[in-house]
Amino acid sequence: MYQNCLKFCIKGNCTNDGYRFSPKSSIQQDFWCKLIGWTCSDECRYICMWNTVEKFQAQHGYVPKFHGKWPFTRMLGMQEPASAIASMLNLATNAYMYGRIRSEFTVRKVPIVLFWHGFALVCMNAWMWSTIFHTRDTDFTEFMDYACALSMVMGLFIAVIVRTD
Protein backbone atom coordinates (compact mmCIF):
# COMPACT_ATOMS: atom_id res chain seq x y z
CA MET A 1 0.00 0.00 0.00
CA TYR A 2 2.73 2.43 1.06
CA GLN A 3 5.08 1.50 -1.80
CA ASN A 4 2.33 1.87 -4.43
CA CYS A 5 1.32 5.26 -3.04
CA LEU A 6 4.97 6.37 -3.00
CA LYS A 7 5.60 5.26 -6.59
CA PHE A 8 2.43 7.03 -7.82
CA CYS A 9 3.15 10.21 -5.82
CA ILE A 10 6.77 10.56 -6.95
CA LYS A 11 5.87 9.86 -10.58
CA GLY A 12 3.04 12.39 -10.56
CA ASN A 13 4.65 15.19 -8.55
CA CYS A 14 8.45 15.06 -8.71
CA THR A 15 11.15 15.68 -11.28
CA ASN A 16 13.27 12.69 -12.33
CA ASP A 17 15.83 13.31 -9.58
CA GLY A 18 13.09 13.28 -6.90
CA TYR A 19 14.33 16.49 -5.31
CA ARG A 20 12.23 19.14 -6.98
CA PHE A 21 8.52 19.41 -7.61
CA SER A 22 7.39 19.09 -11.22
CA PRO A 23 5.32 21.95 -12.70
CA LYS A 24 2.22 19.70 -12.57
CA SER A 25 2.68 18.83 -8.88
CA SER A 26 -0.36 19.01 -6.62
CA ILE A 27 1.73 19.10 -3.42
CA GLN A 28 1.82 22.42 -1.57
CA GLN A 29 4.86 22.72 0.68
CA ASP A 30 4.78 25.14 3.63
CA PHE A 31 7.48 27.71 4.42
CA TRP A 32 9.11 25.65 7.19
CA CYS A 33 9.44 22.50 5.09
CA LYS A 34 11.02 24.55 2.30
CA LEU A 35 13.39 26.20 4.78
CA ILE A 36 14.51 22.89 6.29
CA GLY A 37 14.95 21.32 2.86
CA TRP A 38 12.24 18.70 2.46
CA THR A 39 12.45 17.37 -1.09
CA CYS A 40 9.57 16.25 -3.29
CA SER A 41 10.24 12.56 -2.59
CA ASP A 42 10.41 13.37 1.16
CA GLU A 43 6.99 15.01 0.90
CA CYS A 44 5.63 11.97 -0.93
CA ARG A 45 6.98 9.66 1.81
CA TYR A 46 5.29 11.83 4.43
CA ILE A 47 1.94 11.99 2.59
CA CYS A 48 1.93 8.25 1.80
CA MET A 49 2.93 7.41 5.37
CA TRP A 50 -0.15 9.17 6.76
CA ASN A 51 -2.42 7.72 4.05
CA THR A 52 -1.19 4.25 5.00
CA VAL A 53 -1.58 4.95 8.73
CA GLU A 54 -5.22 5.95 8.21
CA LYS A 55 -5.95 2.77 6.23
CA PHE A 56 -4.10 0.51 8.69
CA GLN A 57 -5.94 2.00 11.64
CA ALA A 58 -9.30 1.59 9.91
CA GLN A 59 -8.66 -1.96 8.68
CA HIS A 60 -6.30 -3.47 11.27
CA GLY A 61 -6.48 -1.18 14.30
CA TYR A 62 -2.77 -0.42 14.62
CA VAL A 63 -0.12 2.01 13.43
CA PRO A 64 2.82 0.56 11.43
CA LYS A 65 6.40 1.80 11.50
CA PHE A 66 7.93 3.40 8.41
CA HIS A 67 11.63 3.13 7.61
CA GLY A 68 12.06 1.72 11.15
CA LYS A 69 10.35 4.66 12.87
CA TRP A 70 6.95 5.49 14.24
CA PRO A 71 5.08 8.21 12.34
CA PHE A 72 5.14 11.72 13.83
CA THR A 73 3.23 14.77 12.72
CA ARG A 74 5.62 17.47 11.54
CA MET A 75 5.50 20.82 13.29
CA LEU A 76 7.23 23.88 11.83
CA GLY A 77 8.99 21.46 9.46
CA MET A 78 10.47 19.39 12.32
CA GLN A 79 10.24 15.66 11.77
CA GLU A 80 10.18 14.76 15.48
CA PRO A 81 9.17 18.01 17.19
CA ALA A 82 9.16 16.81 20.82
CA SER A 83 12.61 15.21 20.48
CA ALA A 84 13.99 18.25 18.65
CA ILE A 85 12.68 20.60 21.35
CA ALA A 86 14.05 18.38 24.14
CA SER A 87 17.45 18.37 22.43
CA MET A 88 17.32 22.18 22.09
CA LEU A 89 16.58 22.47 25.81
CA ASN A 90 19.52 20.18 26.64
CA LEU A 91 21.75 22.31 24.41
CA ALA A 92 20.53 25.50 26.12
CA THR A 93 21.13 24.01 29.58
CA ASN A 94 24.66 22.94 28.64
CA ALA A 95 25.39 26.37 27.14
CA TYR A 96 24.13 28.09 30.31
CA MET A 97 26.30 25.91 32.55
CA TYR A 98 29.30 26.41 30.27
CA GLY A 99 28.83 30.16 30.66
CA ARG A 100 28.88 29.73 34.43
CA ILE A 101 32.09 27.66 34.26
CA ARG A 102 33.72 30.34 32.09
CA SER A 103 32.72 33.14 34.44
CA GLU A 104 33.53 31.44 37.76
CA PHE A 105 36.74 29.53 37.06
CA THR A 106 39.99 30.31 35.30
CA VAL A 107 42.52 27.85 33.91
CA ARG A 108 45.36 29.58 35.79
CA LYS A 109 43.78 29.02 39.19
CA VAL A 110 42.21 25.61 38.51
CA PRO A 111 43.99 23.71 35.67
CA ILE A 112 41.34 20.96 35.47
CA VAL A 113 38.90 23.60 34.21
CA LEU A 114 40.49 23.16 30.77
CA PHE A 115 39.09 19.61 30.72
CA TRP A 116 35.62 20.88 31.67
CA HIS A 117 35.78 23.46 28.87
CA GLY A 118 36.46 20.68 26.36
CA PHE A 119 33.81 18.44 27.89
CA ALA A 120 31.19 21.19 27.71
CA LEU A 121 32.00 21.85 24.03
CA VAL A 122 31.71 18.12 23.23
CA CYS A 123 28.31 17.99 24.97
CA MET A 124 27.00 21.11 23.25
CA ASN A 125 28.11 19.73 19.89
CA ALA A 126 26.30 16.44 20.60
CA TRP A 127 23.07 18.22 21.57
CA MET A 128 23.29 20.45 18.49
CA TRP A 129 23.52 17.38 16.21
CA SER A 130 20.71 15.70 18.13
CA THR A 131 18.53 18.74 17.46
CA ILE A 132 19.44 18.73 13.77
CA PHE A 133 18.81 14.98 13.44
CA HIS A 134 15.39 15.13 15.08
CA THR A 135 14.49 18.13 12.95
CA ARG A 136 15.57 16.54 9.66
CA ASP A 137 16.56 12.87 9.49
CA THR A 138 19.06 12.13 6.72
CA ASP A 139 21.87 9.58 6.59
CA PHE A 140 24.39 12.32 7.39
CA THR A 141 22.47 13.85 10.31
CA GLU A 142 21.84 10.36 11.75
CA PHE A 143 25.56 9.54 11.57
CA MET A 144 26.52 12.85 13.17
CA ASP A 145 23.93 12.42 15.93
CA TYR A 146 25.18 8.93 16.82
CA ALA A 147 28.88 9.78 16.47
CA CYS A 148 28.57 12.91 18.63
CA ALA A 149 26.42 11.08 21.20
CA LEU A 150 29.20 8.48 21.41
CA SER A 151 31.77 11.26 21.90
CA MET A 152 29.65 12.63 24.75
CA VAL A 153 29.40 9.19 26.39
CA MET A 154 33.17 8.76 26.10
CA GLY A 155 33.60 12.23 27.61
CA LEU A 156 31.33 11.21 30.48
CA PHE A 157 33.45 8.10 31.01
CA ILE A 158 36.60 10.24 31.20
CA ALA A 159 34.79 12.66 33.51
CA VAL A 160 34.02 9.82 35.91
CA ILE A 161 37.69 8.88 35.99
CA VAL A 162 38.74 12.51 36.50
CA ARG A 163 36.20 12.99 39.29
CA THR A 164 37.25 9.84 41.18
CA ASP A 165 40.96 10.61 40.97
Rank of each mutant, 00 (worst) to 15 (best):
W50L: 02
A147M: 11
G99M: 09
Q3C: 03
V160D: 09
H117V: 11
R100Q: 11
I112V: 14
K65H: 08
C14V: 00
K55H: 05
L121P: 02
V162P: 01
I27M: 08
T15H: 10
C148V: 03
A82W: 11
N90K: 13
C5I: 10
C44S: 03
M124V: 00
G68P: 04
T138H: 05
P23N: 07
K109T: 09
L91P: 00
A82T: 15
Q57C: 15
M88N: 05
W127Q: 04
L156Q: 11
R163W: 08
W38K: 06
Q79I: 02
T73R: 14
K109N: 12
R102I: 09
G18Q: 04
S103I: 03
T135M: 12
V107S: 09
E43A: 12
N4F: 11
C148T: 15
Q79E: 14
C33V: 05
F105G: 00
G99P: 08
L156M: 09
V63H: 03
W116Y: 13
A92W: 07
W127M: 04
G61S: 01
Q28E: 04
C123T: 06
N90V: 00
Q79F: 00
K7F: 05
C40M: 00
N94K: 14
G155D: 03
D145E: 14
L156H: 07
A86N: 15
Y98S: 13
D17V: 04
D145C: 07
L35N: 07
R20F: 14
M128C: 10
D42E: 12
E104P: 01
R45W: 00
P111N: 02
T106W: 00
Q28M: 03
Q29L: 11
Y96S: 05
Y62D: 06
A92S: 08
A120Q: 10
H117G: 02
